[in-house]
Design a protein around this nucleic acid. Structure first.
Lengths: 248, 248
DNA sequence: TGGGCGTAGATTGTATAAAGTTTCGCCTGT
DNA sequence: ACAGGCGAAACTTTATACAATCTACGCCCA
């Protein structure tokens, strides 16, 4: 369970195992399919905050009944990237600036600790996987594929969390990364240069050298830089301000 | 949203608002009712790890259809206190010693930070509420009410998290507290003296004095003491060892 | 007598239908 | 012309029925 090698995910194993004879190939876990599809869309900035996620609509896309769609949406709501309003439906979450500050504070706290564990767990296999990931990031960046860049940038942090072997931190960080993606989409300043890949490379180097202090420092400055690129004033839409001032 | 006063929870407001005419008094949110009922049972050590949570069974208890029960169980599974096995059903989670170590490490990390925020947010209203809670704890302890003691002990930590005004830490800590309850139930050494109330009082005193360092130190030693009372060797049941060795 | 196989019962997974709520358009009255 | 209210459509929520799967008991055979 706390395997530190970059092994296959457990749910993949379970999926393969529990597919005995059904003629539908994806019968393993269709709700996971939906959840990961929507999550990927959010991480790649294809789904914008506030977008309505109708049950029929999604169900038709994935060929699933609303029962399955509903469970997937509830899981996403628990992860904080979807808001479910009673009798209204599910919407892509719209984090407030206050949420954004909380998310980044939590990321600093958790990811600095994760980096420590990652340094302890360093191995050739992991270094290999990290550098392979860096290559993917660079390639997407050169290709100008913004969507892939955003997604890979988040996956880098998740990779280090997996490397730490700390499943609780990993779960927490998954949530924080997904919310960060929404936050960046909402509040990033207009002209943002290619972010992160160099920082990521520096973090990997420090981890490879088992340089605890440098790795932490690099991660901290990386997160701070991301947050510094944000403009955390009241959201652009005026309705939001109204909702904040009057309602909750 | 980030109100630092001990106000009512937002969902309670929503519940009250969306109860216009229904003749059923508990119409607010029956799935929450189920979820909180089961959670309370776990926190009070009435439900033991491994207990089967049949859908029909729970549905009959709460007078709800399986649809709602299923929703509640899925939420609990996401919080890590219930395991759902495909085509087998839901069971109260049985944390491994490795899980226990992760939970307490995460609690140390998060609760030390939460205490800092709580010191910043100190106010007469909050001090009042904390001391009122301490009184409840002492009373339950004198009364010899073990179940109430366990529950209140967890609620103390949640209270400080609410005081910090950091909703993300609060959500994380809720999960960790619930899992801690299961861990303590599974791994606590036989003879355990009345735990915690004195520590809790010390923490409140330090917070009241805005003594940052002392508050952190008290919280740290408190958590360490709880973990020290645990015997984190392989679980009593041998099947568990088998499952760990062979399966995952 | 012990083990393997098959069927029956029970339980969960999924889909569909009924019920309740919200929203939007239209119509009427001023 | 505009404000307010009524009504229908769309959607979510909840319940129920059906299908798939697992567990357990009993029978048969070696």
């Amino acid at each position: 369970m706390s395997s530190t090698e970059p092994s296959n995910q457990s749910f993949e194993l379970m999926a393969a195992k529990s597919r005995p004879k059904s003629d539908v190939p994806d019968a393993s876990d269709r709700v996971s399919r939906i959840r990961e599809g929507v999550t990927a869309a959010i991480l790649e900035h294809r789904l914008l905050p506030g977008t309505k996620l109708g049950e029929d609509e999604i169900g038709e896309i994935y060929g699933a009944s609303r029962t399955l769609v509903r469970t997937a949406l509830q899981q996403l709501a628990h992860e904080g990237i979807v808001n479910i309003e009673k009798n209204r439906g599910a919407f892509v979450a719209r984090p407030t600036p206050a949420d954004a500050r909380e998310v980044f504070e939590a990321r600093r706290l958790i990811e600095l600790t994760i980096v420590d564990h990652a340094v302890d767990a360093v191995s050739p296999v992991w270094i290999n996987r990290l550098q392979q990931h860096l290559a993917e990031e660079r390639e997407a960046e050169q290709r100008g594929d913004a969507r892939a860049s955003v997604r890979l940038s988040g996956e880098f942090h998740r990779l280090i969390a997996e490397m730490s072997g700390h499943s609780i931190y990993l779960g927490f960080l998954k949530e924080l990364i997904a919310r960060s993606s929404l936050i960046i989409l909402l509040y990033r300043r207009h002209d943002t240069p290619a972010c992160g890949t160099d920082h990521h490379a520096g973090i990997v180097t420090a981890i490879r050298k088992r340089d605890n202090q440098t790795a932490r420092a690099q991660m901290l400055s990386h997160l701070n830089e991301i947050e510094a690129e944000l403009f955390l004033k009241d959201p652009a839409a005026d309705e939001l301000r109204l909702a904040d001032v009057l309602g909750a």
